[in-house]
Each structure stands twice: as structure tokens, then as C-alpha cells.
Amino acid sequence: MARHARTHPAGRGPMTAGVVLAGGCSSRMGAAKASLEWHGSTFLRHVTDVVGRAVGGPVIVVRAPGQALPALGSQVIVCDDAEQGRGPLQGLATGLAVAEREGASLAFACATDLPLLHSAFVDAVLRGFTAAAAGDDWATPDAAIPRIRGFRQPLAAGYRTSLAPHLHALLEAGRSRLSDLLDSVDVHLLDEATLLADTRLFAADPDLASVFNVNTPEQYRAACAQPTPEVVVEKSILVGTELVASERRCVRASTLGAAAEQSGVQLDGQVVVAVNGSCFPAEAQSPLQSGDVVMLLTASRPVSA
């Protein structure tokens, strides 16, 4: 297929986006996976927020036409699949096309059923493009595909957004399997050793549980039984312009709301939140991940971030 050269502003890499496929029928689960409860949030809210922490552009959720979705973060764009019943390749084509229109040239694409996904995994996959190309845009592969425990992971992978027309051509030719896509484009495979050479990913997810997908009630129960992330919470109280109290503690919490509750903080207009040094939405369902450092600044009067 034709390759597409792109230019980027000096000193900047390509914009990245996320594509999350939510339109599956969930037949083996017996319930819509997007809305499954996940430690005070939902599968879809959790996955979209985790992906959003690793990409520079929007996160696009592709749903079946008319499909009801749980509440999502403000950075998420929801779009309907153009045609129902054509599998994940159709959803991927739709999501990549929207991501390209939004200005992204690379996207991390996944399904909604990856509750153990870590943003360090997303980041490592997307940086696989840079490692393969060594800065040469013409050498950038079409896809960066993890290969974990001997299996390719096309629904936890990176793609050029310009692939959308090629995906549509495959669909029109009756080739609707993800393997049809991988067999017809330039793929850079990322094996376990390559992924875990990333020190942040090795520390956060040494077992690469990020690709554990949940299809059955038994798998759902197994995922729910995994340890809750351990995070550090730094709580400070501001009176006027002075910090009058500060404490630091380790807690186990899957969401910002759970971490705040354990620290005796109510998430309201009087709280400023930062995670790992960056401003963070003060929303109870915002997911936390192992290794996060959460700063909660409470004040005697409303403060702005």
C-alpha cells in the first residue's frame, strides 16, 4: 500500500491519539463490558482515562450505532461505527479516520475490556514507532504490535491513522479479520523483552497484565481479584497563602475518589489535584495506577488550578 510522509514542527514528534473500541456484543460476558463496574468506575471510563494519560491528543470511543455508554471524561470523542456487525476492523477504521481528522498521525488502539491496562504500556507501544524509524518518517512502520507470550496483540497496539482507507479497502474485499490487516502492512513487532526494557513499564507492569482481556464472568472475577494499585498521597492544607499542615501516606486506591476518601479529603471546589506533578481533574472516577503520587491541596477558600 502507499506510504504517507508527514512533516512535524521542528523539535516535536507526531501527535498521538487513542482509539477505544466499545461496540462488541459481549456475548460471552452476558452484559455490556463497557459499563461493567470497576472499583467505583466502569471499564470504559477506566480504559479511556488510562489511554488519555499517555497520548497527546484526544481519545476516540467507537460504539455501535445507538449504543448506550457510561459517563466519560471530557477529553473523549464518541463516534458511531459506520456499519454494525463487521467486527473490530470496521471499528478500528472508523476510529483511525476520526483521529486523523483531529490531527493525530499515530494512535494507540484497544478494546474496552482491558481493565489492567497501564499508561506506561501505552507509552511504550507508541514509542515503538520512534525506535523502529530512528527519526526517519519514511521508515516509520504502519503498526507497532506487541507480541506477548507468543501471541500478537492487535487490540492493544499502535497504528498510523493514515491506514483508515486501507482498512476500508480490506473490508470491501471481504477481508475483515485483524490478521488480514497485519498481513498486509508494515508491522514492527514488540516482544516482551523489548517492551520491558522500558524501565517505567517494567516497574509498573512487569507481567504485562495490560493485555489481559476480560471476556467471561470468570475472567471478570479474576481481574477484580487483582491487588488494588498502591499510590502515594500527599495532603496539604492551605490557609490564606500558608501551608499549615502536610502529610504523606501510602494507600491502595483505584480511583482519585478512593484515595481522597482514605485521606479525609472531599473532592469539591476547594481541592486542587496533581498526579505525578501534573494537574489532574478532581473527579472521583478518575483512575489511579500503581506508582502514582497524588497531591491533594485543600484550602480554606476556593483556589484555581
Rank of each mutant, 00 (worst) to 15 (best):
P9G: 08
T16H: 01
A17P: 07
V20Y: 04
A22D: 03
G23M: 09
C25W: 13
M29S: 13
G30A: 14
L36N: 03
H39G: 00
F43L: 06
L44C: 09
A54L: 03
V61S: 04
R63G: 07
A68D: 14
P70Q: 14
P70I: 01
L92Y: 05
T94W: 07
T94Q: 04
L96S: 06
L96R: 02
V98L: 15
G103A: 12
S105L: 08
L106I: 11
A109Y: 07
F121H: 08
D123K: 03
A124L: 05
V125T: 10
T130W: 12
T130A: 15
P141H: 02
P141Q: 05
P146N: 08
G150V: 01
R152A: 01
Y159N: 06
T161L: 04
P165L: 08
S179T: 14
S184L: 06
V185R: 09
H188A: 15
D191G: 10
A193G: 13
R200Q: 14
L201Y: 08
D205T: 14
D207T: 12
S210I: 12
F212V: 02
F212S: 05
N213W: 09
Y220S: 02
A223K: 04
A223G: 00
Q226G: 00
V239F: 01
L243S: 06
E247I: 10
C250L: 11
V251S: 00
A274R: 15
G277M: 08
C279G: 11
Q285P: 07
S286W: 06
S290V: 03
V293D: 05
V293Y: 06
L297A: 06
S300E: 09
P302M: 08
V303Q: 14
S304R: 14
